[in-house]
Amino acid sequence: METLTIPDFTTDPFFGLEDAWVETAPGELTHYHELGEGTPVVFLHGSGSGVSAAANWWLNLPELSKHCRTIAVDLLGFGQTIEAPDSEFGIKAWVEHVVRILDALGIEKTWLVGNSLGGWVAFQFAIDHPERLAGIISMGTGGAPRTKALASHAKPTMTPDGIRQALLDFVVDPSLVSEELVNSRYAAASREGATERFRAVVAARDIDRETLPLDMDVLSKLDIPVLLIHGREDKVIPMSRSLQLLDVIPHADLHLFSQCGHWSQVERAEDFNKVVASYLSTRG
Protein backbone atom coordinates (compact mmCIF):
# COMPACT_ATOMS: atom_id res chain seq x y z
CA MET A 1 0.00 0.00 0.00
CA GLU A 2 1.44 3.35 -1.05
CA THR A 3 2.01 5.65 1.91
CA LEU A 4 -0.07 8.82 1.74
CA THR A 5 1.51 12.21 2.36
CA ILE A 6 0.29 13.96 5.48
CA PRO A 7 -1.16 17.35 4.46
CA ASP A 8 0.42 20.61 5.50
CA PHE A 9 -2.38 21.45 7.92
CA THR A 10 -2.68 22.61 11.50
CA THR A 11 -6.00 22.77 13.35
CA ASP A 12 -7.05 26.31 14.25
CA PRO A 13 -5.26 27.26 17.52
CA PHE A 14 -8.69 28.41 18.80
CA PHE A 15 -9.47 24.75 19.51
CA GLY A 16 -6.16 23.94 21.22
CA LEU A 17 -5.89 20.39 19.87
CA GLU A 18 -2.96 18.66 18.19
CA ASP A 19 -3.35 16.87 14.86
CA ALA A 20 -2.83 13.17 14.19
CA TRP A 21 -3.28 11.08 11.05
CA VAL A 22 -3.68 7.39 10.34
CA GLU A 23 -3.94 5.55 7.04
CA THR A 24 -7.20 3.59 7.25
CA ALA A 25 -7.50 2.22 3.67
CA PRO A 26 -5.76 2.58 0.31
CA GLY A 27 -6.05 6.26 -0.57
CA GLU A 28 -7.75 7.06 2.76
CA LEU A 29 -6.03 9.15 5.45
CA THR A 30 -8.05 9.80 8.59
CA HIS A 31 -7.49 12.95 10.63
CA TYR A 32 -8.06 12.79 14.39
CA HIS A 33 -7.12 14.17 17.80
CA GLU A 34 -6.01 11.92 20.66
CA LEU A 35 -5.43 12.67 24.34
CA GLY A 36 -5.16 10.52 27.46
CA GLU A 37 -4.65 6.85 28.23
CA GLY A 38 -6.71 3.87 29.30
CA THR A 39 -10.15 2.81 28.08
CA PRO A 40 -10.61 3.97 24.47
CA VAL A 41 -13.50 6.37 23.83
CA VAL A 42 -14.08 7.47 20.23
CA PHE A 43 -15.90 10.78 19.67
CA LEU A 44 -18.07 11.24 16.56
CA HIS A 45 -19.10 14.72 15.43
CA GLY A 46 -22.34 15.98 13.88
CA SER A 47 -23.01 17.18 10.33
CA GLY A 48 -23.25 20.97 10.53
CA SER A 49 -21.50 23.30 8.12
CA GLY A 50 -17.75 23.62 8.73
CA VAL A 51 -17.91 20.79 11.24
CA SER A 52 -14.90 18.76 12.36
CA ALA A 53 -13.83 16.70 15.35
CA ALA A 54 -12.12 19.74 16.86
CA ALA A 55 -15.13 21.99 16.30
CA ASN A 56 -17.37 19.56 18.21
CA TRP A 57 -15.14 18.38 21.05
CA TRP A 58 -12.56 21.05 21.87
CA LEU A 59 -14.15 21.77 25.27
CA ASN A 60 -14.42 18.10 26.21
CA LEU A 61 -11.28 16.19 25.21
CA PRO A 62 -8.84 17.94 27.59
CA GLU A 63 -11.02 17.22 30.63
CA LEU A 64 -12.27 13.75 29.69
CA SER A 65 -8.75 12.63 28.73
CA LYS A 66 -7.95 12.69 32.44
CA HIS A 67 -10.18 9.64 32.75
CA CYS A 68 -9.73 7.69 29.50
CA ARG A 69 -8.11 7.57 26.06
CA THR A 70 -10.08 10.09 23.99
CA ILE A 71 -10.00 9.89 20.18
CA ALA A 72 -12.02 12.41 18.17
CA VAL A 73 -12.15 11.66 14.43
CA ASP A 74 -13.11 13.49 11.26
CA LEU A 75 -15.55 11.16 9.52
CA LEU A 76 -15.39 10.57 5.76
CA GLY A 77 -16.37 13.73 3.92
CA PHE A 78 -15.72 16.00 6.90
CA GLY A 79 -12.84 17.98 8.31
CA GLN A 80 -9.36 17.04 7.10
CA THR A 81 -9.90 13.34 6.49
CA ILE A 82 -8.86 12.40 2.95
CA GLU A 83 -11.13 9.87 1.30
CA ALA A 84 -10.21 7.63 -1.61
CA PRO A 85 -11.51 8.72 -5.04
CA ASP A 86 -14.17 5.99 -5.10
CA SER A 87 -15.46 6.65 -1.57
CA GLU A 88 -19.17 6.82 -0.87
CA PHE A 89 -20.89 8.65 1.96
CA GLY A 90 -23.79 7.56 4.13
CA ILE A 91 -24.60 5.93 7.43
CA LYS A 92 -23.18 2.51 6.51
CA ALA A 93 -20.04 4.08 5.00
CA TRP A 94 -19.45 6.11 8.17
CA VAL A 95 -19.88 3.03 10.35
CA GLU A 96 -17.36 1.08 8.28
CA HIS A 97 -14.98 4.04 8.42
CA VAL A 98 -15.10 3.85 12.23
CA VAL A 99 -14.33 0.12 12.01
CA ARG A 100 -11.28 0.86 9.87
CA ILE A 101 -10.12 3.51 12.34
CA LEU A 102 -10.37 1.04 15.22
CA ASP A 103 -8.44 -1.54 13.24
CA ALA A 104 -5.73 0.96 12.26
CA LEU A 105 -5.31 2.08 15.88
CA GLY A 106 -5.33 -1.47 17.22
CA ILE A 107 -8.54 -1.04 19.22
CA GLU A 108 -10.64 -4.19 19.63
CA LYS A 109 -13.50 -2.67 21.63
CA THR A 110 -14.44 0.94 22.32
CA TRP A 111 -16.97 3.34 23.74
CA LEU A 112 -18.57 5.68 21.21
CA VAL A 113 -19.66 9.22 22.07
CA GLY A 114 -21.74 10.73 19.28
CA ASN A 115 -23.33 14.10 18.68
CA SER A 116 -26.34 14.30 16.31
CA LEU A 117 -25.16 12.46 13.17
CA GLY A 118 -22.42 10.97 15.34
CA GLY A 119 -25.04 9.49 17.67
CA TRP A 120 -26.79 7.94 14.69
CA VAL A 121 -23.49 6.45 13.50
CA ALA A 122 -22.87 5.08 17.01
CA PHE A 123 -26.22 3.28 17.16
CA GLN A 124 -25.87 1.94 13.62
CA PHE A 125 -22.42 0.71 14.65
CA ALA A 126 -24.07 -1.10 17.58
CA ILE A 127 -26.48 -2.78 15.16
CA ASP A 128 -23.77 -3.81 12.68
CA HIS A 129 -20.81 -4.52 14.98
CA PRO A 130 -22.03 -5.10 18.56
CA GLU A 131 -18.95 -7.16 19.42
CA ARG A 132 -16.71 -4.09 18.97
CA LEU A 133 -18.69 -1.86 21.33
CA ALA A 134 -18.43 -1.33 25.10
CA GLY A 135 -21.14 1.33 25.32
CA ILE A 136 -22.65 4.47 23.79
CA ILE A 137 -23.11 8.05 24.94
CA SER A 138 -25.17 10.11 22.51
CA MET A 139 -26.51 13.64 22.36
CA GLY A 140 -29.37 14.78 20.15
CA THR A 141 -29.18 11.56 18.12
CA GLY A 142 -30.22 11.62 14.48
CA GLY A 143 -31.37 8.77 12.27
CA ALA A 144 -35.11 9.34 12.21
CA PRO A 145 -37.26 10.44 9.24
CA ARG A 146 -37.52 14.21 9.34
CA THR A 147 -40.86 15.90 9.91
CA LYS A 148 -39.62 19.49 10.11
CA ALA A 149 -36.16 20.94 9.60
CA LEU A 150 -34.44 24.20 10.39
CA ALA A 151 -33.29 25.81 7.17
CA SER A 152 -29.90 26.60 8.71
CA HIS A 153 -29.33 22.89 9.25
CA ALA A 154 -31.09 21.31 6.26
CA LYS A 155 -29.84 23.83 3.67
CA PRO A 156 -27.08 25.88 5.28
CA THR A 157 -25.77 29.04 3.64
CA MET A 158 -22.00 29.01 3.25
CA THR A 159 -21.36 32.57 4.35
CA PRO A 160 -20.21 33.91 7.73
CA ASP A 161 -23.78 34.98 8.47
CA GLY A 162 -25.09 31.58 7.40
CA ILE A 163 -22.59 29.79 9.64
CA ARG A 164 -23.44 32.16 12.51
CA GLN A 165 -27.17 31.47 12.16
CA ALA A 166 -26.61 27.71 12.08
CA LEU A 167 -24.58 27.91 15.28
CA LEU A 168 -27.12 30.20 16.94
CA ASP A 169 -29.78 27.58 16.23
CA PHE A 170 -27.67 25.07 18.18
CA VAL A 171 -27.68 27.00 21.46
CA VAL A 172 -29.87 28.88 23.90
CA ASP A 173 -27.08 31.26 24.96
CA PRO A 174 -26.04 33.32 21.89
CA SER A 175 -22.85 34.54 23.59
CA LEU A 176 -21.35 31.10 22.92
CA VAL A 177 -21.28 31.86 19.19
CA SER A 178 -18.10 33.93 19.19
CA GLU A 179 -16.53 35.56 16.15
CA GLU A 180 -13.53 33.24 16.54
CA LEU A 181 -15.81 30.20 16.33
CA VAL A 182 -17.75 31.56 13.36
CA ASN A 183 -14.56 32.47 11.52
CA SER A 184 -13.02 29.05 12.14
CA ARG A 185 -16.11 27.20 10.93
CA TYR A 186 -16.39 29.47 7.88
CA ALA A 187 -12.73 28.96 7.01
CA ALA A 188 -13.26 25.18 7.15
CA ALA A 189 -16.39 25.42 5.01
CA SER A 190 -14.63 27.65 2.45
CA ARG A 191 -11.63 25.46 1.65
CA GLU A 192 -11.21 24.30 -1.91
CA GLY A 193 -13.80 21.64 -2.74
CA ALA A 194 -15.46 21.90 0.68
CA THR A 195 -18.82 23.13 -0.61
CA GLU A 196 -19.24 20.28 -3.10
CA ARG A 197 -18.07 17.76 -0.52
CA PHE A 198 -20.51 19.08 2.08
CA ARG A 199 -23.42 18.92 -0.37
CA ALA A 200 -22.57 15.29 -1.06
CA VAL A 201 -22.46 14.27 2.60
CA VAL A 202 -25.67 16.15 3.44
CA ALA A 203 -27.45 14.52 0.47
CA ALA A 204 -26.28 11.08 1.65
CA ARG A 205 -27.35 11.84 5.22
CA ASP A 206 -30.82 12.94 4.15
CA ILE A 207 -31.37 9.96 1.84
CA ASP A 208 -30.39 7.54 4.59
CA ARG A 209 -32.63 9.30 7.09
CA GLU A 210 -35.57 8.19 4.97
CA THR A 211 -34.31 4.83 3.67
CA LEU A 212 -32.12 3.53 6.53
CA PRO A 213 -33.58 4.75 9.84
CA LEU A 214 -32.35 3.02 12.97
CA ASP A 215 -33.86 -0.45 13.43
CA MET A 216 -35.70 -0.17 16.73
CA ASP A 217 -36.31 -3.92 16.90
CA VAL A 218 -32.56 -4.55 16.94
CA LEU A 219 -31.93 -1.71 19.41
CA SER A 220 -34.54 -3.23 21.74
CA LYS A 221 -32.15 -6.17 22.19
CA LEU A 222 -29.02 -4.04 22.71
CA ASP A 223 -27.06 -5.39 25.67
CA ILE A 224 -24.64 -2.53 26.41
CA PRO A 225 -24.84 0.56 28.63
CA VAL A 226 -26.27 3.61 26.87
CA LEU A 227 -26.43 7.19 28.11
CA LEU A 228 -28.71 9.51 26.18
CA ILE A 229 -28.06 13.23 26.67
CA HIS A 230 -30.37 15.90 25.32
CA GLY A 231 -30.83 19.64 25.64
CA ARG A 232 -34.40 20.41 26.61
CA GLU A 233 -34.52 23.36 24.20
CA ASP A 234 -33.00 21.50 21.23
CA LYS A 235 -34.50 22.97 18.04
CA VAL A 236 -32.56 20.76 15.62
CA ILE A 237 -33.57 17.33 16.96
CA PRO A 238 -36.37 17.48 19.55
CA MET A 239 -36.12 15.93 22.98
CA SER A 240 -38.78 13.41 21.94
CA ARG A 241 -36.10 11.60 19.90
CA SER A 242 -34.16 10.63 23.03
CA LEU A 243 -37.41 9.71 24.78
CA GLN A 244 -38.17 7.37 21.89
CA LEU A 245 -34.76 5.70 22.21
CA LEU A 246 -35.12 5.54 26.00
CA ASP A 247 -38.38 3.66 25.59
CA VAL A 248 -36.75 1.07 23.30
CA ILE A 249 -33.19 0.45 24.56
CA PRO A 250 -33.17 -1.81 27.63
CA HIS A 251 -30.08 -0.41 29.41
CA ALA A 252 -30.51 3.25 28.48
CA ASP A 253 -30.38 6.16 30.92
CA LEU A 254 -31.35 9.72 30.00
CA HIS A 255 -29.85 12.99 31.20
CA LEU A 256 -31.64 16.22 30.23
CA PHE A 257 -29.98 19.62 30.40
CA SER A 258 -32.23 22.64 30.94
CA GLN A 259 -31.56 25.90 29.09
CA CYS A 260 -29.64 23.90 26.53
CA GLY A 261 -30.04 23.34 22.81
CA HIS A 262 -28.50 20.91 20.35
CA TRP A 263 -24.90 21.50 21.43
CA SER A 264 -24.90 20.18 25.00
CA GLN A 265 -21.17 19.37 24.91
CA VAL A 266 -20.48 23.06 24.30
CA GLU A 267 -23.36 24.89 25.96
CA ARG A 268 -23.11 22.87 29.17
CA ALA A 269 -19.51 21.75 28.71
CA GLU A 270 -18.49 21.63 32.37
CA ASP A 271 -21.61 19.72 33.42
CA PHE A 272 -21.43 17.52 30.33
CA ASN A 273 -17.85 16.52 31.14
CA LYS A 274 -18.79 15.63 34.73
CA VAL A 275 -21.78 13.54 33.63
CA VAL A 276 -19.80 11.66 30.99
CA ALA A 277 -16.77 11.10 33.25
CA SER A 278 -18.99 9.77 36.02
CA TYR A 279 -20.87 7.47 33.66
CA LEU A 280 -17.70 6.05 32.17
CA SER A 281 -16.05 5.56 35.56
CA THR A 282 -18.97 3.50 36.89
CA ARG A 283 -19.48 1.42 33.73
CA GLY A 284 -16.17 1.48 31.88
Rank of each mutant, 00 (worst) to 15 (best):
D103Y: 01
G143R: 05
G38P: 06
I82P: 06
W120S: 00
T39A: 06
C68W: 02
S65I: 00
A55M: 09
L64I: 04
A126G: 08
L150H: 09
V98A: 03
A134C: 11
V113E: 10
G48V: 09
A144S: 15
A126C: 08
D103A: 12
E34A: 01
K66S: 13
A122S: 13
L35H: 14
G106K: 03
E37G: 03
G118E: 04
L105V: 08
L150F: 03
A151K: 15
W111S: 05
K109P: 11
D74E: 09
A55G: 12
G114E: 04
L112M: 02
F43V: 00
S138R: 02
V51Q: 05
E108P: 05
S52I: 08
E34W: 03
I71P: 02
W94P: 01
G142T: 12
G119E: 01
A55F: 05
G140I: 06
D86I: 01
V121E: 03
V51I: 14
S65H: 10
H129R: 15
S87P: 09
F123C: 07
R146C: 12
G38R: 08
H129S: 12
G46T: 09
A151V: 15
E83A: 14
Q80H: 14
L59H: 13
L61G: 05
G48L: 04
E34L: 01
R69P: 03
V42W: 02
G90C: 06
F78S: 06
G50E: 09
W111C: 04
D86H: 08
S47D: 12
E63I: 10
P130G: 11
G140Q: 00
S49Y: 03
